[in-house]
Lab assay of single mutants.
Amino acid sequence: QKPIVRVFLPNKQRTVVPARCGVTVRDSLKKALMMRGLIPECCAVYRIQDGEKKPIGWDTDISWLTGEELHVEVLE
């Protein structure tokens, strides 16, 4: 079983991306966001920890988040 990260996107959409070492959250999600007309710069990404949303940086190595759920939200 490959290491993955589940990602909840705006508009009730979601995707799953591989959690590859040395790849940033930005690079992992860029294609999924672009297909939906979004760019990382207009969004914020969060991980859910103890039921709370914790913001994470787009430059975080995605392999550190293996098995986690991330939420991407459009910044107002």
Rank of each mutant, 00 (worst) to 15 (best):
T15S: 05
Q49Y: 13
T66V: 10
P3I: 02
R36D: 12
M35A: 15
A19N: 02
L9A: 00
L75W: 04
E69T: 13
K54F: 12
I62V: 11
D59Y: 03
D50C: 07
K30W: 03
I62N: 02
Q1H: 13
F8C: 13
V16Q: 05
Q13H: 07
R36H: 05
K12R: 15
N11R: 06
V7I: 10
N11V: 02
L65E: 07
L75F: 05
V7P: 00
M34L: 11
H71S: 09
R6A: 05
T15H: 05
T15E: 04
G67T: 05
L75Q: 13
E73H: 08
F8S: 11
A19R: 05
A32D: 09
Y46N: 14
M35I: 12
A32T: 07
Q49N: 12
V23R: 11
S28D: 00
Q1C: 14
V25P: 01
G22H: 06
G22N: 04
I4S: 05
L9C: 01
V72Y: 00
A44S: 10
V25Y: 00
E76M: 03
R47S: 12
K12H: 12
G22F: 05
P3W: 03
D27V: 07
G51C: 08
L65M: 12
V16W: 05
T24F: 02
V72C: 08
V16D: 13
W64F: 12
G57V: 08
W58G: 05
C21V: 15
A32P: 13
E73D: 12
L70A: 13
P55M: 15
K31Q: 10
I56C: 09
N11P: 02
W58M: 08
K30F: 05
R47T: 11
R6S: 05
V45R: 00
C43L: 12
P55T: 11
M34E: 14
I56Q: 10
I56N: 01
K12L: 09
Q49V: 12
K12G: 14
P10L: 01
P40Q: 14
M35W: 06
L9R: 00
S28T: 07
L70I: 07
S63K: 10
P3E: 15
A32N: 07
A32L: 09
C21S: 14
L33S: 02
P40C: 13
K31D: 12
A44N: 15
V5W: 01
D50M: 10
I39F: 11
A44G: 10
V5P: 00
V72L: 05
M34F: 04
L38S: 05
E41N: 13
W64V: 14
T24Q: 09
E76W: 03
D61F: 05
W64Y: 07
T15P: 00
N11K: 05
E76D: 14
C21I: 13
D50K: 14
G37Q: 14
G37W: 02
E52R: 08
C42A: 12
D61Q: 09
K53Y: 09
K31E: 08
Y46T: 10
A32Q: 06
D27M: 06
E52V: 08
I39K: 15
K31W: 02
I4C: 02
D61M: 14
E69K: 08
I56K: 00
F8M: 14
S63I: 03
P18D: 10
I4H: 02
L38W: 09
G51Y: 05
G57L: 12
V5K: 01
C42S: 14
E73N: 02
L70M: 11
D27L: 07
T15M: 09
V7H: 00
V16H: 04
R20Y: 10
C43V: 08
C21R: 15
T60I: 14
G37K: 15
P18S: 12
R20W: 04
G37I: 02
K2N: 14
R47K: 15
G51T: 12
L33D: 04
I48P: 05
D50W: 05
L70V: 14
F8H: 11
K54N: 14
V7S: 00
T60E: 13
K12T: 06
A32V: 10
I39Y: 11
D59Q: 08
L9Q: 00
